[in-house]
């Protein structure tokens, strides 16, 4: 149980940062960084998908309640929980063994890890912004929002991921 304490702290930190800081920063209409998907992405890859799904459900619901998302945050986060093992394999070529006792993420090169985070962020943001607008009428604006926001989210996620993985590796 103790080994999951770092993940709880990370989740709380990212949740507070998202709700009280990132959601209140108004840089441009098409720029909306989102860090909370990291809570799901950085969970131990060895953790069974069913638990990851429940964590994603909890995080999504908490976000929906905190910012009035009406299910939008949950609906966009659940698929990420479902596909993250496949995504890791597609971006890094590393296959997750649930019987593995050593954490997989700290063993990845930082470049591989960031590629995994960047692609996951892009997919999450694409689903989130599409569900939010529910329209392809302004496709160029939608694509700009997806790519610019995913890029900014990944840039902010870089130091957070680096610090967290270093902390996990030390343990």
């Amino acid at each position: 149980m103790y080994k999951y304490l770092s993940y709880v702290w990370l989740a709380l930190l990212l949740f507070v940062a998202q709700v009280f800081l990132l959601d209140n920063i108004s840089i441009a209409m098409w720029l909306r960084p989102m860090l909370f998907p990291l809570i799901v992405l950085l969970l131990p890859m060895e953790l069974r998908t069913v638990w990851v799904l429940f964590v994603a459900l909890g995080v999504g619901l908490a976000m929906d309640l905190a910012v009035g998302g009406s299910g939008l945050y949950t609906a966009s986060l659940l698929p990420l929980a479902m596909i993250r093992s496949t995504l890791l394999y597609a971006t890094t070529g590393r296959y997750v063994e649930h019987s593995d006792q050593t954490a997989l993420l700290p063993r990845l090169a930082m470049r591989q890890l960031m590629l995994y985070v960047a692609v996951a962020m892009l997919l999450h943001h694409a689903l989130f912004f599409f569900l939010e607008t529910l329209s392809l009428a302004s496709l160029s604006t939608l694509l700009l929002r997806i790519f610019a926001s995913a890029l900014l989210s990944t840039l902010i996620a870089l130091p957070v991921t680096r610090l967290f993985i270093a902390k996990i590796a030390v343990k």
């Binding site: 998908t49 069913v50 799904l53 459900l57 999504g60 998302g69 009406s70 299910g71 939008l72 949950t74 609906a75 659940l78 698929p79 929980a81 479902m82 569900l131 529910l134």
Partner: peptide, 23 residues
């Protein structure tokens, strides 16, 4: 697992879809 995911996603989407008349 797939059933559980579909159930959760379905409920989330249904809630989102019916939250406002616009959606």
């Amino acid at each position: 697992l797939v059933l559980l995911f579909l159930l959760m996603e379905g409920v989330a989407l249904w809630y989102y879809a019916t939250a406002t008349p616009y959606n």
